[in-house]
Amino acid sequence: MNISRSASLLVLALALSATGTAVFAQTSKTRGVSGRGLTLPSVNMTLPADSAVFPDGPHADTVNANCLSCHSASMVLYQPRLAAADWRKIVEKMRDAYGAPVEAADIPVIVDYLATLSAKTPAR
C-alpha cells in the first residue's frame, strides 16, 4: 500500500530458527507440523455443555424448542429491555436470515413470551 506500512512489517524469515527457540522445538511427544521453530499440533477439543433453559412461563417449552438448538438462552436473557415489536423483528430475522425453522404459528407465542419476560428489565 505504501512504503512505511510495508516497512513496519518485520520479516523474521530464518532468523527465528537460527535462534533455536526451544519452546517450539518438536519433541517425540509432540506430533504436528513444524517449520522455522514453530510447531502446530493437531487438536481435538470439546466445548462445555450448556444445560440452561428459559425461565418457566407460558410457552416456555415452545421457546426452548425453537431457540436452543442454535444458541444458548443467555443470548436472549442478556438483552436489554425490548418491546414486542423489537422481539418480533429479532424472531423474524432468526427465521429469515439465520435459517431457524420456526413455524409461523409459533412466532406470536415466542414474541409474547419474550416481551413479557423482557418487561421485567428496567428501561433505558
Partner: peptide, 17 residues
Amino acid sequence: MVGRRRVIGGMGLAALA
C-alpha cells in the same frame, strides 16, 4: 442438553442463579 434444567440470570432474574 435441554433436559437438564438450569435457569440462568438476566432479564432481572439473576436471583435465580
